[in-house]
Amino acid sequence: MKIAQDRQKSYADKARREDQYQSRDFVLIKVSPMKGIRRFGIKGKLSPRYVGPYEILNRVGDWAYRLALPNSMERIHNVFHVSQLRRYVTDPSHILSPDELELNEDLSYEEMPLWIMDTKVRTTRNRDIRMMKVMWSRHGAEEATWEVEQEMFKAYPHLFN
């Protein structure tokens, strides 16, 4: 029994991450902190995973850190669990500022379609499905997605005027 427990512990330890941060370190905050909540609609591949960087002010308990958040995020509690943080590595290409995203209180934001770039009909065994390639706000043409026309009409009727 002890051998089996040790083996399972070694598997669990590989996935476990025990990051330790110091005061004055910079970290990124996870935007969608809870599982099962679909932020940003169904466009998961377009959604940013982290925002920041933010400076760590101090450690609160064993697994939490207090961050220096900007005034635009004053309604958000400034203490975060270590699992919601990632160490900041200097690279300006992955920084998303919360001012550009207009974050809600639950660290989510609304992505809006700008225009329809292309349309096509996808044929299955039983029916034809009309699809459209949609250009989204704050994203380039290479990140446009194919969406079902009927669902887009329900969610965004202003695109069809």
Rank of each mutant, 00 (worst) to 15 (best):
H94Y: 11
D99C: 09
I129Y: 05
V121F: 04
P70Q: 07
T123G: 00
R16E: 13
M152K: 02
N161G: 11
Y156K: 03
I116A: 01
I129V: 15
T90C: 11
V31P: 09
N161R: 14
A68V: 09
I56K: 03
L46F: 00
V31W: 03
D6R: 15
R130S: 12
Y109L: 07
D19E: 09
M1G: 09
D128N: 15
A68S: 13
V79R: 00
P157S: 07
F153R: 15
D118A: 10
G36I: 08
V60H: 03
M152P: 03
E105Y: 03
E111V: 14
L46T: 01
G61I: 10
V134T: 01
S10P: 00
G44K: 15
L101I: 11
R87K: 15
A12E: 15
R75S: 14
L28W: 03
D13V: 11
Y54E: 06
K154R: 13
I129N: 06
R75C: 09
P48D: 10
R138S: 11
H94S: 12
H139F: 10
V27Q: 04
A15Q: 14
M117L: 13
I3V: 10
Q5I: 14
L159K: 07
G44C: 06
T119H: 06
V31F: 01
R66N: 04
L85T: 02
V51D: 00
V51T: 11
T124C: 06
L85N: 01
T90N: 14
F153P: 05
V60C: 08
I29N: 02
L101D: 04
I95K: 06
M1Y: 05
R39V: 07
A4I: 15
W136V: 11
V51E: 06
K2D: 10
R87H: 05
S32G: 13
K9R: 15
E142N: 15
N161V: 13
E147F: 01
F80Y: 08
R87E: 10
H94E: 11
G41E: 01
A4H: 09
D118G: 02
W63A: 14
K45E: 11
M34C: 08
E151A: 08
F40V: 06
Y50V: 11
Q5R: 12
S72L: 14
R86V: 04
S137M: 12
E55S: 06
R138C: 05
G41V: 02
Y50F: 15
L57I: 14
R16W: 11
Q8N: 12
G36C: 06
E105F: 00
D91W: 00
M132E: 09
L107H: 02
R16H: 12
E111T: 09
M135D: 02
W115C: 13
R24K: 13
Y109V: 05
E147Y: 04
K120M: 09
A144T: 08
F40I: 03
N71E: 15
L107V: 04
Y54A: 06
H77M: 05
L107Q: 06
T123M: 12
L57A: 00
K35S: 10
E110Q: 12
F26S: 08
L114N: 04
Y88L: 08
M135R: 13
L107K: 03
S23F: 01
M132I: 07
S93K: 12
P113I: 05
I42M: 01
R39N: 07
S137K: 14
